[in-house]
């Protein structure tokens, strides 16, 4: 099973290491060609402005949209959530607010429960994190902090404002791999 990790910039190696530890092949994606024959996709944390400019420079927007809309299981963290929103790739029917919790001195970690995720609360690391400002009807909100959605699911896409890849908790990455293995009754975002 091959999972592409967008590797224009950000903590793509942390994702790749976790995926490898779970037995998947992680492939760094920097060009449209590297998106071929992927079973799943990760959009990592990083700087969303830099990542957006990179997507433009590499002409990745179209191919990424096509891949995700065709039902490829996708996990997005922090900047990845922003990249998927209405203002950017337009995959998720949400608007996000960047740096919503404030500058770095206000970054934090906390325990949160994710709806439908067994195993108890998970440690969520928020770094200059966004939140979801407004979500359309097809978007399921899985968790909130300060009354703002920080984890959402829309069909084959799970997007969170925090960084599971910086913790030992592999449940979100397992969700991604399980979604790939599940019978293809998936609906595209």
């Amino acid at each position: 099973m091959t999972i592409g990790v967008l590797a224009l910039q950000g903590d793509f190696e942390a994702h790749a290491d976790l995926l490898a530890a779970l037995g998947a092949d992680a492939r760094a994606v920097r060009t449209p060609e590297e998106l071929s024959d992927l079973d799943g996709l990760v959009l990592p944390g990083g700087e969303s402005t830099t990542m957006t400019l990179g997507i433009e420079r590499e002409r990745l927007a179209g191919p990424l949209r096509e891949l995700i809309r065709s039902g490829t299981p996708t996990l997005a963290t922090c900047a990845g959530l922003i990249v998927l929103d209405r203002q950017h790739l337009g995959i998720l029917d949400v608007t996000t607010r960047r740096n919503a919790f404030g500058r770095q001195v206000r970054s934090f970690e906390t325990q949160i429960d994710l709806a439908g995720m067994p195993g108890g609360p998970l440690c969520a690391v928020f770094i200059r994190a966004p939140w979801v400002e407004e979500a359309g009807p097809g978007v399921e909100v899985l968790a909130e902090v300060d009354g703002h959605p920080v984890a959402v699911r829309q069909a084959n896409v799970l997007a969170v404002a925090f960084h599971p890849e910086l913790t030992e908790d592999t449940r979100l990455h397992r969700w991604l791999l399980d979604s790939v293995s599940a019978p293809r009754a998936r609906t595209a975002a």
Binding site: G10, F12, G46, C78, F108
Partner: peptide, 21 residues
């Protein structure tokens, strides 16, 4: 929620986000 700010993971985590940049 109990928010732990300024943990080493949070501090070092921002540098993780800058990688490749």
């Amino acid at each position: 929620e109990v928010k732990d700010t300024a943990t080493f993971r949070v501090k070092a985590g921002l540098a993780e986000m800058l990688k490749g940049g």
